[in-house]
Nucleic acid binder design. Structure first.
Lengths: 200, 200, 200, 200
DNA sequence: CATGAATGAGGCTTCATTCAT
DNA sequence: TATGAATGAAGCCTCATTCAT
């Protein structure tokens, strides 16, 4: 009997996403280098051998995961920039989105390991590096907008961006470090880093 | 004869420290889970078998390294608190010390991996967790001092401490992420997070 | 209705032969142990799962292939023996047939692997061995005929047969070894091995 | 205590040769693709993990083995050419050496598998091919010498060489095919292929 | 009949750790 | 003390085979 090709495709896509989701979870909880393919398979609810019908290797899973996470973040940054309100409002929205989006938030830890560790080949690390810089520059652009409109403090926008992202990216890791989940209130404190203080 | 014993002891201590230094370097560059004992031995300039005359296991090396790094940081925090000047001055000194001390600075990356990854046993991770909280509380104490003297902004001192350390700890990792070495100027920007702004 | 059953049977036989032909090709090109069921299925133009509707296992495909090749060779030998002309003529015809029949020729390489390798069980190997000896003996019979008629040199006919078959069987492998396709002229050279040289 | 460096070197060389010898044996008996590293290790009398302290991979073992076997054969051919007596004598010596040298003789089967099978990469196969042709040409040179001295039959020397080597190489495999060990008498029969028959 | 999703046995390879020298 | 040979647990990956559709 012939198969239902369309349903097969959907099922396949579903499986693939299950694996990616499971991988994100396992990479986050156990660490990228420590995570086993069989851990991922178990978490995804399939046999370890089947994972290889979707991905070439553990490395590829990591690469795909990091790439898509970085792309999603890029979209978020672009969306933030064209949003409404002052740049401060935009940043508040951006950070809130970042911290609450389960994917982006927890994925920072995975990206960090992929970038600062030798689990991937130099070429793959280089690609990640490029995207990290791209995204930093997008954040810097937003800050530059804010300096133009007077809501963001003076200073090298790239440096300010680096500081700001260092802060809110890592805040998303608080729960993994036993610091508890950060409240939304911390966003305003973070923004003190870059907000223009007219009183000085 | 007695002389030799003492010299032997010193020699042994020297070797041990060479290994620890090498381990810190290799753990930082390659990643804790990826690092091989033979990498460490090579970097330390001895044979891999000899490493086991100083440490029980790779796990022990990591544990000792993390522990001593955390203790050094504890000392730094205590020293900062009893320093001279306002709390702002003390924080400036603290962060500067943290970022420039090659040991403390790069060790954050190792501690982070040890804490948020399953390379160590739950018990060992628990010990690290305790020290992380201890140190955060010490930083919070300093901030509380500052709130009392009026130089630090209002707000939950533990939360402020968590934000501040999240920022300056991770700034020490900039070079591993391709963000370049942070200048001393960033310290004042970081402090905007917690400094009291009397103009409001 | 009855028609359909017959047609189905033919269709099934066709499929089966496609698989065997594909298997012969893949076994020859890639090696028996290296060949994958999916390689064979692809070459035969069907899905890998479907192969199991015709054969129990990879082992069975190989066994059937070898068996039928050996049987065909047996037929060839019998046909040669009852042919017309001198034994020299018969051998010339036999070798020519062997080398040009795509099946017999390339199949020698498969049989050799099956016989001298542990891809098959000892029992299956034993069966192949028996057929190999059977066929050698048939060739020896032909040589004996030739000795009787005076066209074949003296000597142990089994030994002569073994030498002769060693030569022409392996000549069929020249193209796989980069020696190019042998010309028909080589047959007469081969026959020097066994031809009676009245001049001595 | 310092090690005995010289003895270590010798021991290491010994081990390496044990592995190669074991590999030749296992590859011959079980088949190159079927042979397991652990089979080789067991036969060599060491643990499977230790094999990797001498060779990168199973592929490398095979390559080294084939290469050295081909080189040994090249030497044999060169030695034969400069030997004493007629070319017929030289060939008799050559074939006898080939068939009795346990290494060269049984290694043909391994070389054949490596050359006609996809266990090695195309590059490695290409290198083997080159050596096979080189050695065939050396044999052709000897035959050409014989044609000059009148002891070898007319005809394309490369073709004659190919036929002759096809015969005596594969004769070395008789025992693996259940044909029993060939007697020395067969050598003279083999030589009929190429010997000049003055009577014609 | 046909397809390819799914499983898991089994081989390859790495590397922490032990131990003879 | 110092070296590196030796071991084998454990993870990666392949692919024959099964089975739902």
């Amino acid at each position: 009997m012939a198969r239902n090709v369309i349903k097969d495709q959907q099922q396949r896509e579903l499986r693939r996403n299950q694996i990616l989701t499971a991988a994100a979870s396992v990479f986050t909880k156990r660490g990228v280098a420590v995570a086993k393919i069989s851990d991922i398979a178990t978490e995804a609810g399939l046999s370890y051998g089947h994972v290889y019908n979707f991905f070439e290797s553990k490395e590829e899973i990591l690469t795909v995961l990091v790439q898509s996470s970085q792309e999603r973040y890029t979209e978020l940054l672009k969306e933030a920039r064209v949003g409404s309100g002052t740049v401060i409002d935009k940043l508040r929205w951006l950070i809130s989105q970042y911290m609450h989006s389960s994917r982006t938030g927890t994925m920072y830890w995975v990206v960090l390991q992929a970038q600062a560790t030798e689990v991937l080949s130099p070429e793959e690390k280089e690609a990640i590096h490029r995207n990290v810089h791209l995204n930093r520059d997008l954040l810097a652009d937003i800050l530059r907008d804010g300096q133009a409109e007077g809501t963001i403090a003076e200073g090298n926008p790239v440096e300010l961006a680096t500081l700001l992202l260092t802060l809110f990216h890592n805040t998303a890791m608080w729960e993994y470090r036993g610091f508890g989940e950060p409240s939304d209130l911390v966003i305003d404190i973070m923004l003190r880093l870059v907000v223009n203080n007219p009183s000085k």
